[in-house]
Amino acid sequence: MPIKSERVIDYSVYLEGDTYLGTAKATLPEISYLADTIKGGGIAGEINAPSMGHTGAMTLTLNWRTVEPQAVQLLAPKIHQIDLRAAIQAFDPATGEYLDRALRITVRARPVSLSLGNLEPAAAMDSNNTFSVSYIKIVKDNDLEPLLEIDKYNYVHKVNGVDHLAHVRNTLGIK
Rank of each mutant, 00 (worst) to 15 (best):
Thr55His: 06
Thr55Cys: 10
Thr55Val: 15
Gly56Met: 11
Gly56Lys: 13
Gly56Val: 03
Ala57Phe: 07
Ala57Trp: 01
Thr59Lys: 11
Leu60Phe: 04
Leu60Asn: 00
Leu60Cys: 03
Thr61Arg: 13
Leu62Tyr: 08
Leu62Ile: 08
Leu62Gly: 13
Trp64Arg: 00
Trp64Met: 01
Thr66Trp: 09
Val67Ile: 15
Val67Pro: 01
Glu68Tyr: 05
Glu68His: 14
Pro69Cys: 06
Pro69Val: 04
Pro69Asp: 13
Pro69Leu: 01
Gln70Thr: 15
Ala71Tyr: 00
Val72Gln: 11
Gln73Val: 09
Leu74Cys: 02
Pro77Ala: 03
Pro77Phe: 00
His80Gln: 11
Gln81Thr: 15
Gln81Val: 14
Ile82Trp: 02
Asp83Arg: 10
Asp83Cys: 11
Leu84Trp: 04
Arg85Cys: 08
Ala86Met: 11
Ala86Ile: 03
Ala86Gln: 09
Ala87Met: 09
Ala87Trp: 11
Ile88Gly: 00
Gln89Ala: 15
Gln89Asp: 13
Ala90Ser: 14
Ala90Tyr: 10
Ala90Cys: 14
Ala90Pro: 03
Phe91Thr: 05
Phe91Trp: 13
Phe91Ala: 04
Pro93Asn: 13
Pro93Val: 07
Ala94Cys: 07
Ala94Ile: 07
Thr95Cys: 03
Glu97Thr: 08
Glu97Cys: 01
Tyr98Lys: 09
Tyr98Met: 10
Tyr98Asp: 14
Leu99Gly: 02
Leu99Val: 01
Leu99Lys: 13
Leu99Arg: 10
Leu99Trp: 09
Asp100Cys: 05
Asp100Ser: 12
Arg101Phe: 04
Ala102Phe: 11
Leu103Cys: 14
Leu103Met: 15
Leu103Asn: 08
Leu103Tyr: 05
Arg104Lys: 14
Ile105Asp: 03
Thr106Leu: 03
Thr106Pro: 05
Thr106Glu: 14
Thr106Gly: 02
Arg108Gly: 05
Ala109Trp: 07
Arg110His: 07
Pro111Gly: 01
Pro111Trp: 05
Val112Gln: 08
Ser113Trp: 02
Ser113Thr: 12
Leu114Tyr: 06
Ser115Met: 04
Ser115Asn: 15
Ser115Lys: 05
Gly117Asn: 03
Gly117Arg: 02
Gly117Lys: 01
Ala122Ser: 09
Ala122Leu: 13
Ala122Phe: 14
Ala123Pro: 00
Ala123Ile: 03
Ala123Gly: 04
Ala124Ile: 10
Ala124Leu: 12
Met125Gln: 12
Met125Tyr: 08
Met125Leu: 09
Asp126Met: 12
Asn128Tyr: 15
Asn128Phe: 14
Asn129Leu: 03
Asn129Glu: 07
Thr130Ala: 14
Thr130Leu: 07
Phe131Lys: 00
Phe131Ala: 01
Ser132Cys: 10
Val133Ser: 03
Val133Thr: 08
Ser134Phe: 06
Tyr135Lys: 02
Tyr135Phe: 15
